[in-house]
Structures are given as structure tokens and as C-alpha cells.
């Protein structure tokens, strides 16, 4: 899949689009470029890309609106390219369905790594094994019926909220989840401003599942944005 993966690059800065296109082509990706949200949607309809890489500030349809429109059509991975200083819009885009973000200026290796991670996530979405109530991804195996969690062969005992949080992480492995999105998914819409709940429960969960809770490898912090769950240590 990696060899022929189709990537749609959306940026109104021709030079940036040009460099990304060349950089990605040399790594074997099939690339097309759109200069704004509207032509991105047109290309999406005709070409069916595997992943979209989009800038935030663009004329006509901006990155945020593009995320919303694409999410309504497809579950394909969306990576945001944002200039530092666009934090608020970046978080809104993640809440609107984007999967990850890269801050400008970025190195090509970082961008390629993020693209690989998202494409891998696409091909390795948590598998529901044999019976439909087992979630298996990376080092994690969760039996949804028995509510049991096994990390690297050993069982972990979680409180109901810790369990809910971990299940949400596992179901969205590799994706950047904003504080808002996590609170809303696990605690419900009334708690979306209670960031301290989340910090406490993430701390407890890390103590139970991380080999070294002070240097987490599974639940990674995305500063000022949220968390990202990496199922492989």
C-alpha cells in the first residue's frame, strides 16, 4: 500500500506544495496538489486519495471546513499543516476530525513519519478478533464483554473510567485526540472543560499500563492539544 499510496496535498503556498510534492514523490507516493479547499474536494471526488495533507489558512474553504467536509464523506486520515500561532484552529481541526498535525516549518523526515503512521493505522485498525468482542492492537488486547485488559500478556486491573478511557484510546490508536474530544467521549458533553479529570485519569492509567510511567511510551502527550495512543511500545 505504501508504494502506491495516494496523497492529496492542499496548500495555497505554491512553493510549499511544490517541495512537499517532490519530497513525497521521491518516497514512492502518488501525489496531487490542490491550492484551496474547494479544488481539494473536487480532486477528492475524482481521485480518491488515501490521505489528505492540508494547510489551515486558505482562501475559500479553509483547512478546518475542509476537515469537516471530508469527515462527512470518508474516514481517510487527514494531517494538518499549521503555522505555530494557529493553535486554536489546529485544535478545532482535530476536533472536526483531523487525525494528526505537523507544525511548520517541518523536516521532511518528520512529515514522512507522520504519513507512514497514519497509513499504517489505516491498514491496522484495531481488529475485532474471532468473536466480535475482542479488541486487539499492538501490545493491547481488550475483551469488551469480560471488560478485561491484557497488556503484553499480563492482565491489568482498571477502574471503570480508566477502562473506558483506554478503550477509547485503543479504538483511536495513532490519532491525536484533543482534551475536548477525550472528555466528551469518556465523561460526556458536560465535562468538556474539566481538563484536570483527564490529567488525573491519564496519570493513573499510565501507572497501570506503562513500563515507566514517567517516560510514557503508550499514551503520549501532545503539548497543549491532547494525547496520542501508540499501541506498540
Amino acid at each position: 500500500m505504501n508504494d502506491q499510496a495516494r496523497i492529496l496535498v492542499v496548500d495555497d503556498e505554491p512553493q510549499i506544495a511544490r517541495v512537499i510534492r517532490t519530497g513525497l514523490k521521491t518516497h514512492g507516493y502518488d501525489v496531487r496538489v490542490a491550492a484551496d479547499g474547494v479544488s481539494a474536494l473536487e480532486t477528492f471526488d475524482d481521485w480518491h486519495p488515501d490521505l489528505v495533507l492540508t494547510d489551515l489558512s486558505m482562501p475559500n474553504l479553509d483547512g478546518l471546513q475542509l476537515c469537516q467536509r471530508l469527515r462527512a464523506l470518508s474516514q481517510l486520515p487527514i494531517i494538518i499543516l499549521s503555522v505555530r500561532g494557529e493553535e486554536k484552529m489546529k485544535v478545532e481541526a482535530l476536533d472536526a476530525g483531523a487525525d494528526d498535525y505537523v507544525t511548520k516549518p517541518f523536516g521532511m523526515d518528520e512529515l514522512l513519519a507522520r504519513i507512514r503512521a497514519q497509513l499504517r493505522r489505516l491498514s491496522a485498525t484495531p481488529k475485532r478478533e474471532t468473536s466480535s468482542h475482542v479488541l486487539q492492537v499492538g501490545d493491547f488486547r481488550i475483551d469488551l464483554e469480560a471488560r478485561s485488559v491484557i497488556v503484553k500478556e499480563s492482565e491489568v486491573h482498571l477502574t471503570p473510567k480508566e477502562y473506558d478511557l483506554l478503550v477509547h484510546f485503543v479504538q483511536n490508536a495513532g490519532k491525536v485526540l484533543t482534551h475536548h474530544a477525550l472528555l466528551s467521549a469518556v465523561w460526556g458533553g458536560n465535562y468538556t472543560e474539566q481538563g484536570e479529570y483527564l490529567r488525573v485519569f491519564v496519570g493513573q492509567l499510565r501507572k497501570k499500563i506503562e513500563p515507566t510511567p514517567s517516560a510514557p511510551r503508550y499514551i503520549l502527550t501532545e503539548p497543549w492539544v491532547g494525547y496520542r495512543f501508540n499501541p506498540d511500545s
Partner: peptide, 13 residues
Amino acid sequence: RTPLTSIKASVST
């Protein structure tokens, strides 16, 4: 940052 992005992406490539 916009021109810096193009430069950084090119150089790193």
C-alpha cells in the same frame, strides 16, 4: 514561517 517551511522541507529532503 511560510518561506522557512519551504526551505526547511527542501533542505531536509
